[in-house]
Design a protein around this nucleic acid. Structure first.
Length: 887
RNA sequence: GCCCGCCUGGCGGAAUGGUAGACGCAGCGGACUUAAAAUCCGCAGUCCGCAAGGGCAUGGGGGUUCGAAUCCCCCGGCGGGCACCA
């Protein structure tokens, strides 16, 4: 500070402080460049083992063109973990890449004539630039996109290894078919049963497709959930339900008349129908048998009965989505076939085709027991089928018990069931299975809901499936030497369907076995395949092989994976499968990909509607003091709608780029962390961001204002009295509190503790107690370092002010440790209750014994009034918490 | 329809069996300023009361407990997933 300045503006001038402002616009790029220059976040493929490793990964983004607030939230959460773990002495790998294959690129090609590749790589460039402005501690040298041939070529290699290991199968399966466009549709492209472009009624069509044999791992995928102790319970529950292990029986029902000689049935000579049931104990409650529309018996019925054929065709128009099928009104058609009851001599029941029976589950056929299954009851009521109660609820009367509007699906005692009568549900199941096995018409089985993973997609912008179809030799894998199978660049999107299929030359190749002309597979992989092993590729992103064994064995599993709850089932389950398949084909040692999982909530915002019903962007409106809103610059009223997930269609989006322009990355990060717990949906508000910005400035001001009066670094902060000691206690309490908050993902609580700490520092601003200078320096240095995982740029800025001579960056410093001596208080406040109601508080020494505490509590005037002379029956003391008198 | 969650002041939330509402946002009052912005200080769940204090209160209803936002049961609302969106 020079003399001229001292003259010009005395320090008493109240404006002096407000002029001290943190210039994030120049500071943030400066620190980003410095981290980059020093290589702070680069790690080797194969570490030397001197430090414990920690692999932090956020779900990689789809390159839609712009980052959105969901990305900002996701990557901020991951970055806090990465920076914290680094400070705790871990070697942290924190990579970033692009989930770059998928439908939107093809849509862009069809709508705007841009090549999917160009569209994708342009988007990646734009989004990379935006991400870099967030100041994430990423090792960018590991970046790749799944549409890079260097990636998907290795994926083809993995596929061939899986094929060789018997983990790949070819089977028939159903797809949504648009008969007008002649195109396979994704579920999201089917709107109210019609194709989104053509409007044609969608049909189900059977295609021969590639499947990964995920069901081979079903028992292991289920059991191993138990070892994932750092996964949320709800995700594990959802996966367990999805895998869906159930114990039951397969029962073969004899047709009373064999089907097949009746007409030219496609499945002649059918004598029986096999059913899977989890409730063999309710077999005596049967009133019908129902098969799926895709079941061979339905086909047999359709072949001889035009009405049955009509019903099957109708079911075929329902699309393939399970949600659609299960929500549809229960409908059926009586085929006229009948089956004999396995236990009741001479009894037979009708066979229906029903739209709620799923071909993919069990055997595609069920026996209907309306008394004890909701769907069966609804169906029976609709078609006037019998309802026989066979399970008596505990305490119910057998003579009067009847089924009304709801089926009884819980356990009870078996009635109306011949040899099963009187048995409880569990033993009755076992007895029924024994009887079925004794008669040779059924067997106890374990059934899984999980189906094999169909990976064939009839699309261009995906990884080509590396096989060749030869008329003479059948399916032939592409020889390893001919990999990668590259996507052709010159493709035509002017007509519907798969451009690979229409390509004039691409698919015409010679059979690798016999050399004769053959046809290349034109299906590409489901994009879930791409995202099922990217976390492994990040460990050695430039390797010749899919992965380098030493690298994946050093880094996997991912220690902390972070992403949206919407991936709780499919993506995570497919990745778990892939890791096992890679292990069993010798690529990795790990069996589980993600040791720790955190699922974040969505980012939401108010939505706004103009009087004409069109959605408005937040920047188009202006809030009024009365809580209403108007169109910016006018007095035209705007309807403030619900707070919901940010989406382009509702226009309730906020562009992260413009937030960083106006407030800086630290503010965006701070707000997104402060608003609420990260697993919950958060609401983005303008005032919340502004508040976060004010806090960054306040922190800067607190430091800058204190700077001239601080003792040099390293001054002894030991002997402190009065306000100085109080500040030191606050410092060390905060170190402990932030550490705990970061360990437990309670980042919003961490932010609150930093706020409290800043308040404590501000409170001590005028203090002059012995040791205050050193205490103040300790506090300011601590707050910068404790906030650094959350606002890393400001932390570096503050640290450089506090330690001008220092060479180390905050990003390179170890985490702070709390001094236990400063964590202990001398006295504590106890709540005093009478009959569980708070009647006062008492201040006691930390080491006071129960008798003293009770005496002091009882002496309280308000406590006496509440006791009102009644005898005390019980005295409860919860140390450090509460005293309760029961009178 | 099925599976999985969530619900606390005007708002986001804290408290995971022990003082409900920490911290922040918005609000109100004050200081500073010609003024505004910024900043700083203070108030604040709600009802009754001058106050001391008391009643009510964690989506609704019931239960367990000396004590429940927290554990259990029922109901309601909102959200995620349902296998070809990513």
């Amino acid at each position: 500070m020079n003399d001229a300045n001292t003259n010009a503006r005395p320090e008493t001038h109240p404006d002096a402080r407000q002029d001290i402002r943190h210039d994030f616009k120049q500071a943030e790029p400066r620190w980003q460049a410095e981290w980059e220059r020093r290589g702070c976040f680069a790690v080797p493929d194969v570490p030397d083992g001197s430090q414990p490793k920690y692999y932090v990964l956020e779900m990689f983004p789809y390159p839609s063109g712009k980052i959105h607030m969901g990305h900002v939230r996701n990557y901020t959460l991951g970055d806090v973990v990465a920076r914290y773990k680094r400070a705790r002495g871990h070697l942290v790998m924190h990579p970033m890449g692009w989930d770059a294959f998928g439908l939107p690129a093809e849509n862009a090609a069809r709508e705007r004539g841009i090549h999917p590749g160009k569209w994708t790589y342009d988007n990646i460039a734009a989004m990379r630039a935006e991400l870099k402005r967030m100041g994430l501690s990423l090792d960018w040298a590991r970046e790749f996109a799944t549409c890079d041939v260097e990636y998907y070529g290795r994926q083809q290699k993995l596929f061939l290894d899986f094929l060789k290991a018997g983990l790949v199968e070819r089977k028939e399966s159903w797809v949504n078919w648009d008969p007008v466009d002649g195109t396979v549709l994704a579920n999201e492209q089917v709107i109210d049963g019609r194709g989104w472009r053509s409007g044609a009624l969608v049909e189900k069509k059977q295609l021969s497709q590639w499947f990964f044999a995920i069901t081979k791992y079903a028992p292991d995928l289920l059991e191993a959930l138990g070892s994932l102790d750092r996964w949320p319970d709800r995700v594990k529950t959802m996966q367990a339900n999805w895998i869906g292990r159930s114990e039951g029986a397969r029962v073969r029902f004899k047709l009373t008349e064999p089907v097949g000689d009746l007409a030219e049935a496609p499945a002649p000579g059918i004598h029986e129908v096999e059913v899977f049931t989890t409730r063999p104990d309710t077999l005596f409650g049967m009133s019908f048998l129902a098969v799926a529309a895709e079941h061979p018996l339905a086909a047999a019925a359709a072949a001889r009965d035009a009405k049955a054929a009509g019903f099957v065709a109708e079911c075929r128009r329902m699309g393939t989505s399970e949600a659609t099928i299960e929500q549809a009104e229960k409908r059926g058609y009586d085929t006229g076939f009948r089956v004999a009851h396995p236990f009741i001599e001479g009894a037979s029941f009708p066979v229906w085709i029903a739209n709620f029976v799923l071909m993919e589950y069990g055997t595609g056929a069920i026996f209907g027991c309306p008394g004890h299954d909701e769907r069966d009851l609804e169906f029976a009521r609709q078609y006037g089928l019998g309802v026989v109660p066979v399970v008596l609820p505990p305490g119910a009367d057998a003579a009067s018990f009847a089924i009304g509007d709801t089926a009884y699906t819980d356990d009870g005692t078996i009635i109306n069931s011949g040899f099963l009568n009187g048995l409880p549900t569990g033993p009755a199941k076992r007895a029924a299975i024994e009887a079925l096995e004794a008669r040779g018409i059924g067997t106890g089985v374990v059934n899984w809901r999980l189906r094999d993973w169909g990976v064939s997609r009839q699309r261009y912008w995906g990884c080509p499936i590396p096989v060749i179809h030869c008329e003479a030799c059948g399916v032939q894998p592409v020889p390893a030497g001919q990999l990668p199978v590259k996507l052709p660049e010159d493709v035509d999107f002017s007509r519907p369907g798969n451009p690979l299929d229409h390509h004039p030359t691409w698919k015409h190749v010679d059979c690798p076995a016999c050399g004769k002309p053959a046809r290349r597979e034109t299906d590409t992989f489901d994009t879930f395949v791409d995202s099922s092993w990217y976390f492994a590729r990040f460990c050695s992103p430039h390797a010749e092989e899919p992965v380098t064994r030493a690298a994946v064995d050093a880094w996997l599993p991912v220690d902390q994976y972070i992403g949206g709850i919407e991936h709780a089932i499919l993506h995570l389950l497919y990745s778990r499968f892939f890791t096992r398949a890679m292990r069993d084909t010798g690529h990795v040692s790990a069996g589980e990909p993600f040791a720790g999982l955190f699922t974040q909530g969505m980012v939401t915002h108010e939505s706004y509607k103009a009087p004409d019903g069109t959605w408005l962007y937040p920047e188009e409106i202006e809030r009024q003091p009365d809580g209403g809103a108007v169109l910016r610059g006018t007095s035209q009223p705007v309807t403030v709608g619900r707070v919901e997930a940010m989406s382009k269609s509702k226009r309730n989006t906020v562009d992260p780029g413009s937030i960083i322009d106006r407030y800086g990355a630290d503010t965006a990060r701070w707000f997104i962390l402060s608003d609420n717990p990260p697993e919950r949906d958060m609401e983005w508000t303008e005032s919340g961001v502004a508040g976060a910005y004010r806090f960054t400035q306040r922190l800067f001001r607190l430091t800058a204002a204190a700077l001239p009066g601080l003792p040099p670094p390293g001054a002894d902060a030991g002997a402190a009295e009065g306000a100085a000691r109080k500040l030191r206690q606050a410092t060390h309490h905060t170190i402990a509190a932030i550490t705990e908050a970061l360990e437990s993902f309670a980042f919003n609580v961490g932010v609150a503790r930093i706020h409290e700490f800043a308040n404590a520092i501000a409170e001590a601003e005028g203090a002059t107690d012995p040791g205050i200078g050193a205490a103040r320096r300790e506090a300011l240095e601590a707050i910068a370092r404790l906030a650094s995982p959350m606002m890393p740029h400001l932390a570096e800025e503050l640290w450089s002010l506090l330690r001008p001579g220092e060479t180390a960056l905050v990003a390179e410093l170890p985490w702070l440790e709390a001094n236990p001596a400063l964590l202990r208080a001398e006295t504590l406040t106890l709540a005093v209750q009478v009959l569980g109601k708070l009647r006062g508080t008492i201040e006691v020494p930390v080491d006071a014994d129960a008798a003293t505490i009770f005496a002091q509590a009882e002496a309280e005037e308000n406590v006496q009034r509440a006791i009102a002379g009644r005898p005390i029956r019980k005295r409860i003391h919860v140390p450090g918490r509460v005293v309760n008198f029961v009178v």
